[in-house]
Design a protein around this nucleic acid. Sequence first.
DNA 1: GCGACGGTTCGGTCCCGGCCGAAGTGTCCC
DNA 2: GGGACACTTCGGCCGGGACCGAACCGTCGC
Lengths: 223, 223
Amino acid sequence: MPAAELAELAALLADRTRAAVLVALLDGRAWTAGELARAAGVAPPTASAHLTRLVEAGLLREHRQGRHRYVRLAGPEEAALLEHLLAYAGPGRPAPTLRAATASAALARGRTCYDHLAGRLGVALADALVARDLLTADLTTTPAGLAWFDALGADFTGTRRPVTRACLDWTERRPHLAGAAGAHLCAWLHDRGWVRRSGTGRAVAVTDDGRVALADLLGLVAP
Amino acid sequence: MPAAELAELAALLADRTRAAVLVALLDGRAWTAGELARAAGVAPPTASAHLTRLVEAGLLREHRQGRHRYVRLAGPEEAALLEHLLAYAGPGRPAPTLRAATASAALARGRTCYDHLAGRLGVALADALVARDLLTADLTTTPAGLAWFDALGADFTGTRRPVTRACLDWTERRPHLAGAAGAHLCAWLHDRGWVRRSGTGRAVAVTDDGRVALADLLGLVAP
DNA sequence: GCGACGGTTCGGTCCCGGCCGAAGTGTCCC
DNA sequence: GGGACACTTCGGCCGGGACCGAACCGTCGC
């Protein structure tokens, strides 16, 4: 019986254009319909129909503002679902063009995964937190870790969301930190100017300040 | 760039018949092509083509024996992938017919998930192991747990597979025990005759002996 | 040997769904 | 108010792929 629903869900992702849209939205930001049409390489009417379908299925949430239609992933569950599939589908063969190769190298170095950090940067952060006994090996908080996040201004009370979650990284094939703590850490590093989006997409790079600060704070050799 | 591979993978699952085949194979057993054709409700040629496609994609492995073509899930990764999707797609609306309702009730009570136990039974087992301090709250083994599994005859050395893994249960929406330990526990309970497949599919029920033994051993009130 | 059976190959049908261009609706800005 | 702009609706085209029946190939059992 659940086979029908499985097929229905998979059908939503089984189209190059919709897949491109979802992957773009994995950066956790809201995109306009036009931006997504350009990113996916299709005409506006085509993108419009796809977005309607994804919104109706509940994978995306939309927010209309003036003449713009903003759209974003519905929530962390949807991001996790996509990450699982991407982790299985794998990075595949290397990128064919130089331009694509440098872009995917930047993504492999560091990127956002919905609302937390992934790529070599994400994995290295998780490793550093484990090495400092702030997280256990399976990425749940230790008492010291809870205190540490508290010092960062995190408040995990009153949220139904798990504080920590291990998210399988689809380039590194190792888990990085997701959940409320992962999201807070990502936002905190951005606020400090220690990491910054590079380029238009999901790629994230450590700033010079960040490189020093992270080495100092966590003994992290930033990728 | 990974969008194309995501769409390709999803397309494999985006068909009712292939989805039905994969869900059937989630019991971890090898099925013949004919059995799967009947289970999915299609003619033999149709099933044959689907199986070829799934095998070529690497989701299934086949084993030809005489005039039979046996087919099974390629490995635990594939099972985990399907479970993730099913957990998201959810149990949906209740079953429309009485026959289907009793079948899905049996599945919800207990079933195999590839090679370990799931459903209320699987979740209850995991809870009992946590309560006895054999597993941590996130379903990794404690030292006592390792000793306990050792006493069960489990040998986790020399396997690349994780000893424990939390697998999100798509009926209970809570994690149950997967990984090498989950598989061993499932096999061990079967060997003892404490659980037994009921019906033709994945459903599993606790036997009378098992009910007594599990209450005795783990304080478990079997579902 | 010979029939029964499981599975596959082939050919043909049919339908779903992705795509775009043109035209329409509403919003913003001057 | 008028023109540029973001987006949507509509109509029509086209390709892919799911399905089956018929015929074919190998294996099993007598």
